[in-house]
Design a binder for these strands. Structure first.
Lengths: 188, 188
DNA sequence: AAGTGATTTTGACCTGGATCAAACACCGTC
DNA sequence: GACGGTGTTTGATCCAGGTCAAAATCACTT
């Protein structure tokens, strides 16, 4: 399981074997049951995750009490509620397990200690931020220019796995539409 | 003019005087006339900007040929078309001067050379990315949860300067609504 | 001050997707 | 196999904001 972690870490920065061992020691394994909440609205995000198997998401509530899913992490994805994690301020986003999930978690304190001490970790974090930014930017483009059907088709072609693993309720909130609309789109 | 640059740089990372002098040398001054384009759609963004005086924006075109403004940079702001700048791939976004503008530009090659050589610059870039990410994330929240009027009111209270300096056409595209809608909101 | 073009406002109309509500399907469990 | 709970589909209605078009205002130029 830490082998997978090492493989993924190496995709982001040029860690040597010794560094990878240090990092493996910082990531602690945990099992979380489907539907459990890893971070509540209003609390500070203290952890950064690597998903071994399973699925978690970050989402927030709008004024009408509807969920908006920002990011879905499947097997071997990494991430967290980044805005709160960065600023160490109360989070607007929640983190929730959508399946029974095995994950590895690194604490914020360790994360930022590494950021001071290990140059390759600095590179790693920089890459994460660059990708997270570009992903968000793309999402804004899609939200402002595409219709519900176009967002449906695009996600279907880019990450069809989401259509298999997410419930309609969650998928709809990820695509920024109501479940009824998603249901209608499915039946063309 | 470079004094202002130094002051702003120091807000992002703990540069010493010697480093600030090196950096000042990397940022080259330029004057750009109102309405001139600094980056066209399809070309690679090679520069990162500090605005001395004036105003520039990044925006992109949707399928119907309407503009969508992502980010407006006023005096003493820093930034660029980050997604293209990061990946050095053709940009979807354009950069345009909205007023006659005095700016300082650093080349991508210098930017990334510094990122290898100067630890404080690494910190600087990390801060930029963190803030850019959080800003984008906030924008997504606003786009998906707020009505046109709520976005109008929020921006009015947070950055009223935009209402004074931007044309209705640009302001509307920044607020993600049509000019007609903005006009109607103004007259309550 | 008249003319030309750009920008902003106003009016009438339309539509994608939300809302509300009810029916339906799919479970696990007693 | 009946029963409650959860998730999905279907139907009827509504509305914020987009679209299209025309009028009004502003901003230069000659």
């Amino acid at each position: 399981m830490t082998d997978k972690l090492k493989t993924v870490l190496k995709m982001f920065a040029d860690f040597d074997e010794q560094e990878l061992n240090v990092l493996s020691g910082c990531f602690k394994p945990r099992s979380v049951a489907k539907n459990s909440i890893l971070l509540y609205e209003g609390s500070v995000c203290k952890e950064f995750y690597f998903i071994s198997t399973g699925c978690i998401r970050t989402f927030f509530m709008d004024k009408n009490g509807h969920e908006k899913t920002r990011y879905v992490m499947l097997d071997h994805y990494i991430g967290t509620a980044l805005t709160s994690f960065i600023a160490q301020k109360p989070s607007i986003e929640l983190i929730e397990a959508l399946e029974d999930t095995e994950l590895l978690a690194i604490q914020h304190a360790d994360f930022y200690r590494l950021n001071k001490q290990m140059d390759h970790w600095k590179d790693f974090y920089q890459r994460i931020l660059e990708m997270a930014y570009s992903f968000q930017n793309r999402k804004i483009e899609q939200l402002t220019t595409l219709t519900a059907r176009q967002r449906y088709d695009l996600t279907m072609s880019e990450t069809p796995e989401l259509f298999q693993r997410l419930s309609n309720r969650v998928l709809a909130s990820y695509l920024d539409m109501r479940e009824e609309t998603l249901s209608r789109l499915k039946s063309r």
